[in-house]
Structures are given as C-alpha cells and as structure tokens.
Design a protein around this nucleic acid. Sequence first.
DNA 1: GCGGTTTAATAACGGTCGTTATGAAAAGCA
DNA 2: TGCTTTTCATAACGACCGTTATTAAACCGC
Lengths: 205, 205
Amino acid sequence: MGRHREFDVDKALDAALCVFWRKGYEGASYADLTEATGVERPALYSAFGNKEELFSRALDRYYERHLNYVPDALQKSTSKEVAAHMLYSAIDLNTRYEGHTGCLNLNGLLAGSDAAESVRQRLIDVRADGEAQFRERFERAKAEGDLPASAKPDALAAYLMAVLHGMAVQAKAGFSRGTLEAVAEQALSTWPASDAAISARSSQS
Amino acid sequence: MGRHREFDVDKALDAALCVFWRKGYEGASYADLTEATGVERPALYSAFGNKEELFSRALDRYYERHLNYVPDALQKSTSKEVAAHMLYSAIDLNTRYEGHTGCLNLNGLLAGSDAAESVRQRLIDVRADGEAQFRERFERAKAEGDLPASAKPDALAAYLMAVLHGMAVQAKAGFSRGTLEAVAEQALSTWPASDAAISARSSQS
DNA sequence: GCGGTTTAATAACGGTCGTTATGAAAAGCA
DNA sequence: TGCTTTTCATAACGACCGTTATTAAACCGC
C-alpha cells in the first residue's frame, strides 16, 4: 500500500547520467539534477540515496548502456581488431551526444561547476595553443621533407596530443569526429617516415 | 612608504601552483591555499586578485617553469624526435612529484575536492578494471599466438587505454613511470604483429 | 469513509565556498 | 614623535552546497 511513485526511476536516472556526464560528479549540483530529472531533491534521495550513490548508479548504467561495446571488442579474434573496435566505438560514443561529449568516467574527473567555465575554456585554449605549435612544427617538417607529402600535420599533432592528454579529453574540448578518427588511425599505425627514408627502403628491397 | 610585504610572492605562487596541480581549480579551496602558502586569504587577494586570477598566474608559471621543454622539443631536427622528446619529458614531469602527479592543465579539469575522494577512487578502480580486461585479453591473444612472444600484454593494454584516456590521466591515477615509458614506446611504434606474420615477412625477404 | 503507509513539495538545516569589511601593526617621511 | 600609507590577521558576509525535518497529498486494505 501507500502512495505510488509519480516519476519514472529509469528516466530520472538517465537524466542524472547526462548531467554527470556533462558536469562531472562535483560539478553536478542537486539544482542541476532536479532541473534535468524534473524530480525534487527529497524524491531523488528516497529513490537513489545520497549523491554518491546516485552517481554510482549512473556509472553502472553508463557501463551497461553506453560502454556495452567493450564485450564485443573483447570477442574479436585478434588483438588489433580489439583495439580498432574499441577506438572507433569510443570515438562514436565520445562525439554522439553534443551535450555531453567525452567519457562519463573521465568527465567525472574532469568537469567542474558552471562557475569555472571560463577557467576550463582557458585551459582548453592553452591546450589548443600547444597543439597548434606542434601542428605548425609538423607543417614545417612537411615543408622540409622530414615528413612525406602524404602526411597530415594536423592529424599528427592531434595524435601526439592524444597520447599526452587522451582522446576523451579532446572530445570534451569539442574536437570533431574526423579529428578523432584520424588520431585512431595514427594510433594503429606507425609514425610516418620521411620520403627519403621511404625511397631508400624501397630501393633496398 | 607603507608597510612592507612579509611573504615571498614567488614562493606563495609556487605553493599555490602545487595545490592547483594536485586538486584542480575548483578542488583547491582557500583553506588549502592558505595552508600551503602560509599566507592568509586577504593577503592572497591583495597580491594576486581573486581565485581565477591566482590560478591564471599559476598556470602561466607552470608553462614557464615546468613545460619549458616544449621549445626544446620543437627545435629537434625531425618530427619523430620532437614527439619522443615530448613524450619522455612529459613522463618525467608527470611522475616527478609524488604529491601532484599528472599535468596541471589536465588536473585542473580532473580533480575535485577531498570530499569526492572516494568517488574519484571508484572511477580509478573502474578504469583499472577496464584495463585489466584488455590486459587479460592480450594475455590470451599472446597465448593463442595472435601476439608474438616478445609482446608485453600489460604494456599493450596500457597503450590502448592511454589512447583512450591519455597518459596524464594515468599518471594522476598513480601509474608507475615504467608503465608510462612503455606506453610511450608503443606510441612511437606500431602494433605488434603475430609471430606467424613475422616469420612470413622474414621468409619473404 | 477511515487508518496506515508511502510519496510529494516546501522550506530549512549546518557547513563551506569565494570574497571582503574592519581594525591593529609596521614602515617611510615630515 | 606624529601622519600617512600599506599590509596584516580576525572575523564576518551572502550564496550555495548536500542533506533532511515537516507537512500535505495520494494510495491501499478494511
């Protein structure tokens, strides 16, 4: 007996998941959660427990619903296929939703409240500056023949930064799907050799 | 005229830098900053302005003092040397200080307050679980001959996750220097081929 | 319809956040 | 020594944080 619950627990959890995905754990306030879920705070507490438990539930659901390609990847017949499946699935996940890019797991360690938006933007800008330096450096290397003509300096710069910072961080910073795909290709291949080295190698065989 | 400043502005900024490095922007409170710097709040405000300006000053100093290997890397003669210099310098920076691992830039997007420590640990654990799955999968691939006997499954798993999450995130999660170095090696090479493919290639030449 | 039980919404709790008013202490100049 | 100026430490500010008492409303079995 007793009064019936008036909201859909699963839908509320999905809405909370999106909030955590976008703002991280600390960055997501109950004001955000009540607005996104349409459920008042005490109802969230009675349904999910405290904030940490709610986040834990959202994290579990994230792995069940959005990271469900991991088992598929693990079942591929070769390790390289496993890696490729993971990389391209992650790109898809990280860029599918415009509102919450990146990975919930990492964004929980990444994002802050709205009050820190300008700071985050500043960090993103500084990061982009660093990448631009490498892109320019690789453009120069390409002009000097250090890199083959087929080399994509922006993709190389993105790859190097991806190894430094991670693809999920790049997705959070608003990178395009195409850029992430280029990073994945580089991650699965080797660093390009110069045209001179290539011609030397082909003349050797 | 007027009273003289009783604390060293540079030392206070260095102390604040370490706090931001470890806890991120939002995660670093003025209670933390006053404790680390030994300077009371009003003095920090008069010397640096508000929190955002103090962080901006710390970020500038971080780039000047700790990321000063970037220009050196950019001056290397080949792009691969540039990448290698960056990768190994970053490993050194990310693991040099036990108190503030990783990268200040990323940790500003990563860390939260102490109250969220258990949540962060939870995320770290989940991340480690994901990596363990790939390590196990690569161990199986090694046993099946999909990977050569010289392959290091834990290094391969770390590499794949590094492409997904980034080296700085791994450093923040407490990874060893050796693991990061292995990731850098992988990032500079290609994915290992199976022993069968290697013998086929060598018999071809 | 009534009692017992569960949920709903309002409002408030103590605590901490970043920030600042306030008055005492120290320094240079007259 | 006084006067002015700057810095110092104490303490408080309003706002928001996560959390919860409190009270009204909705449901079930009788």
